[in-house]
Design a protein around this nucleic acid. Sequence first.
DNA 1: ATGGTATAATTAGAATATCTAACTATTTAA
DNA 2: TTAAATAGTTAGATATTCTAATTATACCAT
Lengths: 151, 151
Amino acid sequence: MTEFKENINYFLVEIFNNILAFEQRCLNRFGGNFTINDVHIIEQIGLDGKRKMTDIAEAMGVRLASMTSAADRLERKGCIVRERSAVDRRIVLMSLTQYGRVTFKLHKRFHDRMANKVIEAFTDEELRVLSPALASLNEFFKKADPSMISV
Amino acid sequence: MTEFKENINYFLVEIFNNILAFEQRCLNRFGGNFTINDVHIIEQIGLDGKRKMTDIAEAMGVRLASMTSAADRLERKGCIVRERSAVDRRIVLMSLTQYGRVTFKLHKRFHDRMANKVIEAFTDEELRVLSPALASLNEFFKKADPSMISV
DNA sequence: ATGGTATAATTAGAATATCTAACTATTTAA
DNA sequence: TTAAATAGTTAGATATTCTAATTATACCAT
């Protein structure tokens, strides 16, 4: 059992960092001048329609002011546009430019192929367990509250 | 099979962010004025002895200049000290202060308890598969090269 | 209609974090 | 002894985040 604990711990530290490092390597290779964060925002905006600044900020788990800052940079890079909603002029809507859409599609394709590579590394048996396990793990961390961990 | 792919993809995006968010929440709660990055560096230095700046930078996957910057901040916070090696005076060694050691132990304990909580969420059967699977996943990303993913 | 309150986004300022390039000091090799 | 290599720091620029304050808009109460 101790071995499991150590692997989980390992996961929380090492895999985390390795994924980050790998993603960065890929971006350096294929990403033009986008940062990981840029790409995640582009992914959140999506291809269809316009998203509220507030919603994207929430989805990314950052404050609205941080999203403004990021949107400034993405706008400067030419891949998003911002406009006021006609319905409620307080609301700013973000959408992708043509350049942004190309970028979205490129990265989506890249992610898909990377997921394929990962899947190839496991047997069907393993995947059958790993897949729901990852879903559970995600749910755990999404809901996890610091007070759960008594110190 | 498509379901598996979707979960893996989900893992690569969502869990990553959720773990980060959770870790940040815990740090806000228990961490004093340390950032996640601070904690990771403290963990890399460890309790026993002194580590080369270069080695820690490598382990963290950042450039040496970035580590200098981080070390400056950590030194200012009073949890590390830097000194020149007597063997080779080009080399700077980092070690934890008493305050740094207390912080190390606190976070180590926290991580252990968090791992326990994660383990509680799974059956023995799942853990038996999940543990080596996570190890494989880690190995994959550690070695993964962008050229593996044809676009 | 007017004034007060709430909401959404931006701005300003500060801190963290990363990188490249240049510099300083030390060690190693020729 | 000189030149090259190595380790760390500095300088400058960019990315990223947050808080607090500000601006503009919408909503509510009178």
